[in-house]
């Protein structure tokens, strides 16, 4: 596995608490959770994150749409775990390794209970969705400058899911539009 290009330190701090660092989430300033999969770095709004699972046991779902990695048992509930790249429409040649981490997102009712729910929290739906990633990175306290998403020329890319690109000294980070990311892409139903 590549060494993270982000400063180390906070990466697995989240794993300790299941509530996705609630003390941080309560502040109004936007915080971004970074994570890496197939060698690329991404970030999403921490507000949407419910918890992070360490090496989750994935139950494969045969004949499911490719964007579904499998199911995960989470304390009596079943999480649909997505494949990040497939959901975004990247056709990476790199096969994803074993599921190291799973970021589990909040459901709409959970988001709605927040003091400042995101405007598109409806998109989170009622069933629990997670995404399988290789590594969790730092939490960014601010966005900094945001570049527009890559042009449409990348075929198959679901642009609605990508809010932009963060040019960081360490490298480019793709900023995920979490609400759109969690919704079912049109035409994915088998």
């Amino acid at each position: 596995m590549d060494a993270p290009r982000l400063p180390a330190g906070t990466s697995d701090a989240l794993l300790a608490s299941r509530g996705a660092a609630p003390s941080l989430a309560r502040t109004n300033a936007e915080q971004l959770l970074t994570f890496r999969t197939r060698g690329r770095w991404y970030a999403c709004d921490l507000l949407w994150v419910r918890e992070i699972l360490r090496q989750p046991a994935l139950t494969p779902v045969d004949r499911a749409p490719p964007l579904v990695r499998g199911l995960i048992h989470l304390r009596g509930q079943i999480v649909t775990a997505l494949d990040l790249d497939r959901r975004l429409g990247f056709h990476s040649a790199v096969a994803q390794g074993p599921a190291e981490r799973c970021i589990v997102f909040k459901t709409s009712p959970e988001l709605a209970r927040l003091a400042h729910p995101p405007s598109d929290c409806e998109l989170a739906g009622n069933d629990i969705i997670g995404v399988v990633v290789d590594q969790i990175g730092d939490i960014l306290a601010e966005r900094g400058p945001v570049l527009p998403p890559p042009p449409d020329t990348i075929s198959g890319l679901d642009h609605a899911c990508i809010a932009g690109v963060l040019p960081r000294p360490e490298g480019l980070i793709t900023l995920i539009n979490t609400g759109a990311f969690l919704s079912v892409p049109s035409g994915s139903a088998s």
Binding site: T59, V61, P65, L67, I72, H73, I78, G125, S188
Partner: peptide, 22 residues
């Protein structure tokens, strides 16, 4: 099943077995 799996025709749902397996 979650909404991403609604289109699959082979399954009508999922369940948890005694040992926590799905």
């Amino acid at each position: 099943l979650g909404r991403h799996l609604q289109g699959t025709t082979l399954y009508s749902g999922a369940t948890l077995l005694g040992q926590g397996r799905i």
